[in-house]
């Protein structure tokens, strides 16, 4: 998949995944990798930035497997950001789809 597409959507996808469920890093990396292929390590700088910007916060808790893990959870500011990004994304993809349908398909 196009690298620029991935870059543009990764932040939104991460917020969506954490919004669905609090997750620790490893678990999140697995989830993200299922839809967007990235080097797992590059997820952490993004998580750090989102945390510093107040969109995510972290807490420690025992995982289902036993050991303590650092969990990421979405803040209300993060939810706002997520909705904002999804709205933007939808308008964007809708316009691109429309462009493909109207400008491309009808003029072959």
């Amino acid at each position: 998949m196009n690298v620029q597409f991935k870059k543009g959507s990764l932040e939104m996808c991460v917020l969506i995944f954490i919004h669905a469920k609090d997750r620790y890093g490893y678990e999140l990396a697995q989830q993200v990798s299922e839809s967007i292929q990235i080097a797992d390590g590059t997820l952490y700088p993004l998580l750090r930035r989102l945390t510093k910007d107040g969109f995510l916060s972290t807490y420690f808790a025992a995982s289902s497997e036993g050991p303590q893990r650092k969990y990421y959870t979405i803040t209300s500011k993060g939810k706002e950001k997520m909705h904002e990004l999804i709205d933007e994304w939808e308008i964007f993809t809708k316009n691109v789809d429309k462009l493909i349908r109207e400008e491309y398909k009808n003029h072959e």
Binding site: Y24, G25, Y26, G41, Y44, L47, R48, T51, R69, K70
Partner: peptide, 13 residues
């Protein structure tokens, strides 16, 4: 923070 996260990733793996 980053090194902690990566250590945790390693342990989990």
């Amino acid at each position: 923070e980053l090194l902690y996260d990566l250590h945790e990733y390693f342990e989990t793996g």
